[in-house]
Design a protein around this nucleic acid. Structure first.
Length: 702
DNA sequence: GTAGGGTTAG
């Protein structure tokens, strides 16, 4: 188009004009004009002209046609420095840093007068590629070359070196170069500040930010973006607000990067309204700004707004990336199962299934929803599970009574990782507690100490619970005493555990200690306290704690509290009081409470007997199980009411119920042996002998 | 005609 216009004007395009025209075509939508120009250049024989050659390489690279750029570059007869530099930055521009490094080292190895080919432009491009490389080695050798070619004085190269080192986490080396620099420019300051921010050295970044201003440098939008990130990392809302004002004053409020950093800062400081406002002000909202907003909603657990933002993004014809869907998915809890599944579908449609972060959040999402199978499946396709995914899958399995599998996952995780985190560890402790697996529990405790997790509240509380359930109440108490930080759960677990182990006085003492030091008891605490009273038969104390719960702490008793009280009253022979309480507590008969009542009646043989109505009410409760029938039948039998016994037995037969045998287990040398009542065979020899001994001792003792 | 510094998750 431009060429024909030139011809119309009777102008003959020369090298300068052609090079300028090629420069204009460096946009994807102008690539056709560019290719036309390329043809014209070949026809005219201008392709080896230095200006034109490098312009063509740049043009192709800006149109994302790296292959065309490389083909043209290779077809030329000679290597010249500038087009070579252009080709290296062409790779960089298209995110191909490995190819950029390869091209550099390849040519340096091949060309005879190779160092004549290298200038400061080459080195800074290659250093940028080295910054993105997975290894620091190429960067180090290029640094050597910088020194050898005496470019250390070049402020641009110093900046490139600093960035290369700080991207690999070598902040000390970057700082050394920075301090040795005679004349620093704004870019050098920015490079150093952002280096610190990227590795969360936010305080150090802020110190440098102050120093640069003292030395007379005016921060630009790039500096401000970095320090905003630092204030977000520090969760320092006051600092963030100051920087917000500064950004506004300097006229950078609509800058996409600074604006997005503001969105992020406000969301991390839980000021979602301000985050939304900052988002509205950003000019030309990018995908990153949408992602930052969605992540903010995710932190708030607001899946509805996250979804609205997502729909908004799609309406703007933007293509989401894996990060968008990660944020969206993380915002969905079990309350938003439908939305989360939709996000999963979208991720598959967009071809993000192999993304590591997304995979991890999928595991987390399904684990939160308690969908074990989905979580396990998602976990299977994650190449690098993170600690959240491990913790998610393990605790999900634990919650769904798949302790065996959870333990397997934990062992695998421990094999691959140096250390597990507190969440997965406490989940596994819970499994061992439920199994009352003392040996494995002690082993895990050792591991906890090795990993330095013993002061983590969740872990320590789990250990307290585990030892109590294994009957090792002394060990449990040792762990409890050693805890530097005890929350209400820790207190509850200890109080309940002491009660279950018959240490009722100690349990109640601990309750008073808890109240005295100012920890507020909750409903769970009182279940433990009442259970302890029940265990010790402390009926009057139980009654006063039951009253105290409502009068002093404003906790209304739940069915569990009533059950404890009813059982306590019945065990001490106060059937009438117990029945009154049961009738007062709820209109729906609760099978657990009635069963516990009648069972308590059997323990206490007294003149006063539970009324017949109470007995029959047991069977009217929903979810009655065989044990209720068995219990009732035994009660009638004790009173000699044989027709009633026969009736119950026959209705059990009609309902297809049979008595579930009692069951217990013992772990010996890492093997769990399960026993059932009346079991006569199936024991290993050494255990049969021991059982025989125990049995005869019991007989002798009556 | 070829260089260096910035934002989103875990």
């Amino acid at each position: 188009m431009h060429l024909s216009r030139l011809r119309r004007w009777g102008l003959k395009p020369n090298e300068v004009i052609l090079s300028a025209l090629v420069g204009i075509c460096g946009r994807p939508n102008r690539i056709d004009h560019g290719m036309g120009l390329h043809c014209f250049i070949l026809k005219q024989g201008f392709q080896d002209h230095h200006f034109i050659a490098s312009s063509l390489v740049v043009m192709y690279s800006k149109c994302a046609r790296v292959d065309s750029a490389r083909r043209f570059f290779e077809e030329r007869a000679v290597y010249d420095c500038i087009s070579w530099n252009s080709m290296i930055s062409a790779y960089l521009r298209n995110g191909m840093s490995k190819e950029a490094i390869d091209l550099f080292s390849d040519a340096v190895g091949r060309v005879s007068d190779r160092l004549a080919l290298v200038n400061n432009f080459t080195l800074s491009s290659v250093l940028k590629a080295c910054a993105l490389s997975g290894s620091i080695r190429p960067g180090r050798s290029v640094h050597g070359l910088v020194v050898k070619l005496d470019f250390e004085w070049d402020v641009v190269l110093a900046g490139s070196l600093m960035t290369m080192y700080s991207k690999h986490g070598c902040l000390g080396r970057a700082r050394l170069i920075f301090e040795k620099l005679g004349e620093r420019d704004l870019v050098a300051w920015n490079a150093m500040i952002s280096g610190y921010v990227q590795f969360s050295h936010d305080e150090e970044a802020m110190k440098l930010f102050q120093r640069m201003q003292l030395e007379g440098f005016l921060p630009n939008e790039i500096t401000l973006t970095s320090v905003l990130k630092a204030s977000a990392g520090l969760e320092d809302i006051d600092l963030g607000k100051c920087l917000h004002a500064y950004v506004t004053k300097r006229g950078h409020i609509s800058d996409s990067f600074a604006g997005t950093a503001l969105v992020d800062m406000y969301s991390k400081c839980s000021e979602i309204k301000d985050a939304e406002h900052a988002f509205m002000v950003v000019r030309g909202r990018s995908l990153v700004s949408f992602n930052a907003l969605i992540s903010g909603y995710c932190l708030m657990g607001d899946h509805e707004r996250a979804m609205l933002a997502y729909i908004n993004l799609l309406k703007q014809a933007m293509r989401p990336d894996p990060l968008t869907l990660t944020g969206l998915l993380c915002s969905c809890s079990s309350k938003a199962l439908g939305e989360g599944s939709q996000a999963h579908c979208h991720a598959i449609k967009l071809g993000f299934d192999s993304d590591i972060s997304l995979g991890n959040s999928l595991v987390g999402f399904y684990a939160k929803c308690g969908l074990t199978d989905c979580a396990v499946e998602a976990f299977g396709s994650v190449i690098e599970p993170n600690s959240v995914a491990w913790a998610g899958i393990i605790s999900c399995l634990v919650k769904n009574d798949e302790g065996e599998k959870a333990l397997q996952y934990f062992k695998t995780m421990h094999m691959f990782w140096e250390r597990a985190d507190e969440f997965s560890t406490s989940a596994v402790i819970k499994v061992l507690a439920d199994w009352a697996a003392a040996e494995q529990g002690k082993h895990l405790h050792t591991l906890v100490i090795k990993m330095g997790l013993e002061s983590a509240v969740f872990v320590a509380t789990g250990l307290v619970d585990m030892y109590c359930k294994c009957g090792m109440v002394e060990d449990s108490f040792k762990v409890f005493v050693s805890m530097s930080l005890r929350n209400d759960v820790a207190w509850n677990v200890m109080i309940t555990g002491l009660g279950h182990n018959g240490r009722c006085t100690k349990s109640l003492e601990l309750f008073h200690e808890m109240v005295d030091i100012g920890v507020t008891p909750n409903a769970v605490t009182f279940i433990g306290v009442l259970a302890a009273c029940n265990h010790a038969g402390l009926v009057d104390e139980g009654r006063s704690y039951f009253d105290l719960m409502g009068s002093r702490f404003g906790i209304s008793p739940s069915i569990e509290h009533y059950t404890c009280m009813v059982s306590l009253l019945a065990r001490t022979g106060r059937f009438h009081e117990a029945e009154l309480l049961m009738n007062a507590c709820s209109s729906l008969p609760d099978p657990v409470m009635w069963r516990s009542f009648l069972a308590s009646c059997r323990v206490r043989r007294s003149e006063e007997r539970p009324s017949r109505a109470s007995k029959e009410r047991l069977l009217s409760a929903p979810d009655v199980c065989s044990s209720s029938y068995v219990l009732l039948s035994n009660l009638f039998a004790e009173e000699g009411l044989w027709p009633e016994v026969a009736e119950i037995r026959s209705s059990m037969r009609e309902l297809g119920m049979s008595k579930e045998p009692g069951c217990s287990w013992i772990a010996v040398r890492n093997e769990t042996h399960v026993f059932t009542a009346e079991q006569k065979s199936g024991f290993p020899d050494h255990m049969r002998a021991t059982l025989f001994l125990v049995h005869s001792e019991m007989r002798a003792g009556g």
